[in-house]
């Protein structure tokens, strides 16, 4: 028995589903999830990428998605605000409910979904316009405040992400001269400016230095009171530091989800333990 396990590990490395992968995922029940997926199955062309993911996303908490590369974390995240819709060969079955409404249902406008479920990407992606206009881009397009209030909104949002002191004197400057960390904060301010209910973050600190990473983490912790967040991260220490809930993906399946403490300290599935340990060394 022991020897079989070792053989499997050698064969497959960090995380590979053990033979008993048919077992259902383990996840904590949540009373009032802001988003919940039911049997979410996604493929590109004939290639299956996600199979039968049932995951509730806790309201006003941070949910971290962890798992090896290629396990479908990004695909899952992007399916929560319909960012996958236009990708070549995208196929989906199963449901994604936002406040109980199926976002893939008939008559749902993906643009409305994306306004309510914002997204921050792996690399900062400011628009080619001034710092001020970057923050206000979404606000202007959705005509959320009268013209006269725009300046206030810009200041509030930049202050919210802690960028105001650094950029107050150069709001008309290009965002591309900011540091990577500042650019990412700007993108966060831009996403927050349209007042989303949920914020999706795909490895938002993976291109940042430790100090900027810390700034972003502190910000996310502060924001959790207002916004529900789902963050994909390769950094297990980060998941541990900021997440309330952790979901572990492997090979397109949700293996285990639950409160951070529980998943890290006493994982219920062997794959989870192996992955978490492997990364910690």
């Amino acid at each position: 028995m022991v020897s079989t396990v070792i053989a499997e590990e050698q064969e497959v490395g960090g995380c590979r589903l053990l033979l008993d992968q048919i077992r259902p995922a383990i996840h904590a029940h949540l009373d009032d999830p802001v988003i919940e997926t039911f049997g979410l199955t996604i493929g590109f062309g004939n290639e299956p990428v996600l199979s039968g993911v049932d995951l509730p996303v806790a309201r006003h908490q941070i949910t971290a998605i962890v798992g090896p590369s290629g396990s479908g974390k990004t695909t899952f995240l992007r399916s929560l605000n319909r960012m996958n819709d236009k990708l070549r060969g995208f196929r989906r079955s199963g449901r994604v409910e936002l406040e109980g409404q199926d976002i893939y249902g008939a008559g749902v406008d993906p643009l409305v979904v994306r306004k309510r479920v914002g997204m921050v990407f792996q690399r900062p992606n400011p628009f080619p316009m001034s710092i001020r206009d970057n923050v206000l881009a979404g606000v202007k397009v959705h005509k959320m405040v009268p013209r006269a209030a725009l300046a206030d909104v810009a200041e509030t949002r930049l202050a919210e992400v802690g960028l105001w002191p650094a950029v107050a004197g150069r709001l008309s400057d290009s965002p591309y001269r900011l540091s990577g960390g500042q650019q990412q904060l700007l993108c966060l301010a831009r996403a927050l400016a349209v007042a989303p209910d949920v914020l999706l973050l795909d490895e938002p600190t993976s291109s940042l230095d430790p100090v900027s990473t810390e700034a972003v983490e502190a910000l996310l912790l502060r924001l959790a009171a207002k916004v529900s967040m789902v963050i994909v991260t390769h950094n297990l220490a980060q998941a541990r530091r900021i997440a309330d809930q952790v979901a572990f993906f492997c090979e397109g399946r949700l293996i285990e989800a639950g409160p951070t403490e529980a998943v890290f300290e006493s994982p219920k599935r062997r794959e989870t333990g192996k992955y978490l340990q492997g990364q910690f060394g």
Partner: peptide, 8 residues
């Protein structure tokens, strides 16, 4: 993609 993600 950033723009699309803002609902543009």
């Amino acid at each position: 993609e950033g723009a699309a993600a803002l609902g543009m």
